[in-house]
Design a protein around this nucleic acid. Structure first.
Lengths: 140, 140
DNA sequence: ATAAACCCTAGAGCTTACTCCAGACTCAAG
DNA sequence: CTTGAGTCTGGAGTAAGCTCTAGGGTTTAT
């Protein structure tokens, strides 16, 4: 039978998420991860849930979301005062944003594929199609 | 016959790209856009090419690329000392990164779709599947 | 019982990517 | 020929997101 309270301390969270201890504490201050319980001596006690949160935060950042936007995404669950209708609307807006990001990434990818294909592997570069491909003007 | 030298000045570039004049000059200082020609009195003279560059920079930023990474992407064309083989290799690495970004965005999107679908529009929120969906551990 | 390896707080400092002056020149319109 | 909008340079200031330091307490192994 697995031990019920397998708490870990901040160092382990940092290691497993490949962040720093300072960053974890910074996320706590910023409200991105909830204030954890403490041991009698004041050490923070974390669970697996925290690992998942931190990983979510890091990945979302790599995708161009600010910490504020990430807080938004995460709040799509925590606040019991928001109605479902509300959450639904907000998710749909986010979904739209994300689809736009995906489309732009696909354009860049196609442009890069073209770069790679054009280069047969010999001689110097002169022109590349990256800029041309991105001219379609999606309104923000 | 179209006029050959339809130059614009910095204000127009700023307006059309929805950035500020200061930002354009900042990009120049940072090497993201080439130093433009000047009028006799010292005003910068730009072409359409600049518009495309600035737009490329802005979009790439929204996708989580730093200015340094963007400089990298753009340099996939300008430096005549790099061989095609080299450019090809670098493009392929970038393509891989971009594919990873797209996959993660798709995961977030699916999670959000689930949020939206689960909410039938009534009552308060309690749980959401955003965190669960992102557990697959792609190595950076 | 003491060293090594943890953890704590508060606050200063750093990097990135702008953003905003001050003080001066340029240019088009009236 | 003056006024107002636009531009110039150099440098200081700002916000986000960490990162580091000082000075101290805790835990574990020997």
């Amino acid at each position: 039978m697995k031990k019920a309270n397998a708490f870990m301390q901040i160092g382990e969270v940092a290691q497993r998420t490949e962040t720093s201890i300072d960053t974890i504490r910074f996320y706590e201050k910023s409200g991105l991860i909830p204030k954890p319980e403490r041991t009698d001596s004041g050490y923070r006690k974390y669970t697996e849930e925290t690992i998942r949160r931190v990983q979510f935060i890091k990945r979302s950042q790599e995708l161009g979301f600010s910490l504020k936007e990430i807080a938004d995404l995460l709040s799509l669950r925590v606040d019991p005062k928001t109605t479902c209708r509300d959450v639904k609307k907000r998710s749909e807006v986010k979904i739209y944003d994300i689809e736009k990001k995906i489309r732009t990434l696909q354009k860049i990818k196609r442009a890069l594929s073209r770069v790679a294909a054009t280069c047969k592997g010999k001689g110097p570069t002169s022109e590349c199609p990256i800029l041309e491909v991105l001219e379609g003007n999606e309104k923000k």
